[in-house]
Write a protein that binds this DNA or RNA. Sequence first.
RNA 1: GGCGGCGUAGCCAAGUGGUUAAGGCGGGGGUCUGCAAAACCCCUAUGCAGCGGUUCAAAUCCGCUCGCCGCCUCCA
Length: 454
Amino acid sequence: MKIFNTLSGQKEEFVPLDKNEVKMYVCGVTVYDLCHFGHALCYISFDVIRRYLEYRGFNVKFVQNFTDIDDKIIARSNERGIPWQELVEKYIGEFFTDMDALNIKRATLYPRATEEIPMIIDVVKTLIEKKHAYVSPDGSVYFSVKSFPGYGKLTHQTADDMRVTETSQTEKKEDPLDFALWKAAKPGEPFWPSPWGNGRPGWHIECTAMCIHHLGRQLDIHAGGQDLIFPHHENEIAQSECYTGLQPFVRIWMHNGFLQLGADKMSKSLGNLVTIKQALERNSSDAIRLFIVSSYYRMPLRYSLEALDAAENGIDRMRQALKVEGKPGGQPVEAGQFKARFIEAMDDDFNAPQAVAALFDLVREINRGNEKGMDVSQAQDMLRELAGVIGFTLQGKKAASSEIEAKINELIEKRNAFRKAREWKQADQVRSQLTEMGVAIEDTPKGTTWKIVR
RNA sequence: GGCGGCGUAGCCAAGUGGUUAAGGCGGGGGUCUGCAAAACCCCUAUGCAGCGGUUCAAAUCCGCUCGCCGCCUCCA
């Protein structure tokens, strides 16, 4: 299995540090607002990767953090006049609601920054002792970038190449590139006691602390959006490798391509968002997932309603192939070659678009076998299995209430009575009535079936 | 200024040196059907932004040009 590593800029053969154990960390969200489609892109992409690693027999320990204290959380809770804890709990709850709705597997562990304070303090203390960090007069602690010669290896730049902006300069820092490990509390801000006074952790340090605490001093895979490469992941490498003295902190750095909305990327700061809840109002989670995995995870993806609706039709075809009955006991449809293609594609840096192409070819093979009176059940099992690796549920969009269901069945019976009497006009009238209710019907040799289409 | 990426059919999107350039959606024709729907079959890129070059051979490597985007500041 080959995986593209941002650090080396190449695909590398994947061998975990510890036999079949994969230590995987995916950067989570700062919980001050709802998740948007960009989060869906990132977390679905890495969900597929995690599912595939498990499918290939690896035991994946998957950790994802919550940043539950930072400037924006403080600002937002002040705006709303509620305690920051309340804000955080609300959006952690919303996060799980959204992730579950998208059929994203739960992580093994969801540590929170505020639960890692002792570990964070330990890391910062050690970095100061090793002269990689210093305490500024106000009680903040900064990491000294110049103390780590490897700084810039993930970004493929040296510290000297980096542009120094005005915002990164403060008199509290010895060098503009230095970044905060610990932020001294201003009046009225939440704080935790530390050897340097009351304060809270900087952004990057929590990931280092959590990784080391929950996964160990070196990990196999650390993943996130491309916007995290710099400064977040670059800084993580610096502080982690200085703390442990081990290199590399992470064997493989993985980054997904960005979601674009119109001309620009979708981001909280630009305010051009489509939330996951909005997306789910329009499309099924399977369709959203198909839209996302139809494009390679490292490529940029443009948000497009047309493409999402096309995915809706595509996934429907996959669902349909699970419904055909074929001829049990007949010659079985051979599905092995599709599995082989699927695995070959996914082994090559998780080429889900190609894997999905194999799935659609299997769909065609099942339908063909059905037409030819073959036994399709094994091929359907294979489709279910491989679709499950991608994370498709292949379940119908919506269930109807029993009341509505009774009404639908009543109308179908009414229509079939007209059909029997060859009263086509009236039969068609009943059908349009069903269409208006959002119900599509199909007449099959075994009777009339229906499904909800909107 | 530095680093990175993208430009493939009407749309989405794989492929990155060598059989007929995946797959999905859409469209056209046919089979089936009372008519539909679903499904199946056939068709839908002599060409991969443009121009040069390397090569027996390039969408794929090299150079230049044009267009688009990301990061260098909080962001998945």
